[in-house]
Amino acid sequence: MSRAELKPPIAAGGMIGVLDLQGDVCEHLDHLGRLGVAARPVKQAEDFEGLAGLILPGGESTCLARLLQIFDIDKVIIRKFHEGVKLWGTCAGAILLAKSLTGETPHLGLIDIEVERNGFGSQLDSFASEASIPKLSQTPIPLTFIRAPKILSVGEGVDVLLRMGDFIAAAESPGVLVTIFHPELTPSLAFHRYFARKCGFRPGGEETAIDPSWDKTSWMRLARITPMDRRSAEPLAKVLPQEMDHETPEGI
């Protein structure tokens, strides 16, 4: 997908940020771009300005937790959450957001769920599957689990979006969405569309789950080797569509 093919933002106001400390940041930015939702990587406290939502991506939760703490980003996330910024954690992100972590001290503690790290085993136990979630999509949604954690239980005020056998794979509270799988590694935009709506955006598009133009290398358009340093100041913000209109999205 070239820059010209990126759809313009449909919702006015605000942006969705992707926490850019470590992990699969470009993959989420690519998905948001496909929905025409303005998005940007978030690395510093000042990057939180104008965000309607923040995605905590997949990566290594111990590394992310350490960096959040060292640079005081954890405090900013908690403050922004209380100001109404919606949060979505995928895999490692879900571990960071959980109120309870089996055998360990929890990190941000912003959603009442209990999570067990590495719930399935090693990389040899990583798997792909699919599931029907009528609330999100009329067609089955592909699911990718990479050294995934398990959600063991949810507390009051948390709804289960997807239960699979003995574990919960997706859940949400009014302010927080958690998935132990990686929608950003599949052609499905359903979860990104759902989260964008939660943030007050109105991304258009058909209700079916699949974007046929996505492939597993799509994220690489945001991580090319170019004669210009591909990672010079604000590279991603330039690539992605953004309408600098800071009206508060509905619902905040």
Partner: peptide, 19 residues
């Protein structure tokens, strides 16, 4: 092919990190 894809994707999770 699916296993290979999952294996490439684990490496994607390590991006920006130190081994």
């Amino acid at each position: 092919a699916k296993r290979y894809e999952l294996n490439v994707q684990l490496a994607q999770m390590l991006k920006g990190g130190v081994i």
